[in-house]
Structures are given as structure tokens and as C-alpha cells.
């Protein structure tokens, strides 16, 4: 028996919004420690890794490890039927071929449940090596989203250059070029508005705008985002989900031939 309850469906909607741009379907691996998901996008350029800890749920029970393959468009249809303030409970029997989403209104006067067929998906787990990154940039998530959106207009790729002075995002194309430089903040009223840079050595890497923009669909999950970079390895874009876990996106760089 598997049962996981979240006080607000809003958070699950945000999690789904953060992955459904990149993935059509995905396997949710449920265990005692929580719900994990790891999946590559169709073109095998990026990897999504989601972790929702069991202690982040209002109620969590998982008697046996369970892998639930879900069609994310169908899951989105179901979540659309919930109000953000509704409680959501995800339920499945051991070895079941369906999962049930139950929504309860705050006053408990409306209870709805939706059953969805599960899919058998080919599980391809990738081993992600531990890496000491040359640069880790932390910045407000809305700022990162804004930069990606703005630069997409000027080119297909963004060049990210990180030095101890700051981080620069550049794009260029037929119409011209664009450069955005962020310096480390010296003092901020709110911690989430800070830009900070941890640098071992400077890095310059090129990434496809399209994927960066998809990653920023996670912006509503977290006020801050971190970008971890080293030469010639995938970028890690990480959003901490308060009191629940994290979502990480890995993106393979573009390499000059």
C-alpha cells in the first residue's frame, strides 16, 4: 500500500509544471524515503532529477518500493481538477496498474478522486558522478528566468562566463548580441534576493536556450536557484523545494568543434 498526502495540491501542480515541458512520461519511484524521479528528455540532452522526501508530506506510507510510470499530460488533466488549496492524496495498491489522486476541499465538503492508468516505462537510471564544481552561482530564481527569457530573443545559445567578479550571460545571432552581467550582491534585505558566487576557477560554457527556458518552469517552486558549472561537464540547475526536497536539471554543454 502506498499513500502520500500533501496539504496543498498547489505544490504538486508546480512540480508537474516544472517537468512536463521536458518529459512526456516519467516513472515516480516511491520508497520509504520518499518519491524520486529521474528521466532524460527525448533528445537525451538534459536530465531531470526530482526528490520529494517522505518527511515533507503531511502523511506518508510506503510498505513496498513502487515504480509508477505516468503519462504527464494525463496527470496534468487530473491536477487541473484540483484547487490549489485542496489537500491531495496519492494512493496505489501494491502491484497495482492504477494510481488514484484524491482531492479534498479545505472544509472537507467536496471530495473527488481520479484514477489513472499506470504505464510500464523502460527504466534507464543514470549514475551521476560526484563533482566538485569550479563555480557555483546562486541567484534569485525569477532573475534567472528573466535572463533566459530575454536572451532567447537573440540567439539559440547562451554563453555563461563566471569569474569571481561576477557572472555574465551572453547571446548573439543575426540581429546582434546581448550581454547581461550580474555582480555578487554586497548586502541585501532579503536573503533570496542575493547573488553569490563560489569560485575555484573561472568557467565559460555554452548552453542551449531552449532547455534553460524549460528549467525555469520550476521558478514558482523556489525563490533561489543555483547553477553549478565546471569545464566540459553538464550544468546543474537546482531549485530547493522548501520543506519537501529539490529538483535538479542537468544540461549537456555545447562544445566548439
Amino acid at each position: 500500500m502506498f499513500e502520500a498526502r500533501l496539504i496543498s495540491s498547489g505544490i504538486l501542480k508546480k512540480v508537474l509544471d516544472a517537468i512536463k515541458d521536458l518529459l512526456n512520461e516519467a516513472t515516480f519511484d516511491c520508497s520509504d524515503s520518499g518519491i524520486q524521479l529521474q528521466a532524460m528528455d527525448n533528445s537525451h540532452v538534459s536530465l531531470v532529477s526530482l526528490n520529494m522526501r517522505s518527511d515533507g508530506f503531511d502523511k506518508y506510507r510506503c510498505d513496498r518500493n513502487l515504480s509508477m510510470g505516468m503519462n504527464l499530460a494525463n496527470m496534468a488533466k487530473i491536477l487541473k481538477c484540483a484547487n490549489n488549496t485542496d489537500t491531495v492524496t496519492i494512493k496505489a495498491q501494491d502491484n497495482a496498474d492504477t494510481v488514484t489522486f484524491m482531492f479534498e476541499s479545505q472544509n472537507q465538503e467536496k471530495v473527488s478522486d481520479y484514477e489513472m492508468k499506470l504505464m510500464n516505462l523502460d527504466q534507464e537510471h543514470l549514475g551521476i558522478p560526484e563533482t566538485d564544481y569550479a563555480c557555483i552561482v546562486r541567484m534569485p530564481s525569477h532573475e534567472f528566468a528573466r535572463i533566459c527569457r530575454d536572451l532567447t530573443q537573440f540567439g539559440e545559445s547562451v554563453v555563461i562566463t563566471c569569474t569571481k567578479e561576477g557572472v555574465r550571460f551572453s547571446a548573439s545571432g543575426d540581429s546582434g548580441s546581448a550581454n547581461i552581467k550580474l555582480a555578487q550582491t554586497s548586502s541585501v534585505d532579503k536573503e533570496e534576493e542575493a547573488v553569490s558566487i563560489e569560485m575555484q576557477e573561472p568557467v565559460t560554457l555554452t548552453f542551449a536556450c531552449q532547455y534553460l527556458n524549460s528549467f525555469t518552469k520550476a521558478t514558482p517552486l523556489s525563490p533561489q536557484v543555483s547553477l553549478s558549472m565546471s569545464a566540459d561537464v553538464p550544468l546543474v540547475v537546482e531549485y530547493q523545494i522548501p520543506d519537501l526536497g529539490h529538483i535538479r536539471y542537468y544540461l549537456a554543454p555545447k562544445i566548439e568543434e
Binding site: P234, L251, A252, I255, E256
Partner: peptide
């Protein structure tokens, strides 16, 4: 001209 790398060239299947 830059080439998009594949994520599988960095992470191996387990």
C-alpha cells in the same frame, strides 16, 4: 560552430 553534446556521454547507465 558548436555541437550539442548528449547527456549520455557524461553519465553512464546503471
Amino acid at each position: 560552430k558548436s555541437t550539442q553534446k548528449n547527456i549520455l556521454s557524461y553519465f553512464s547507465k546503471t
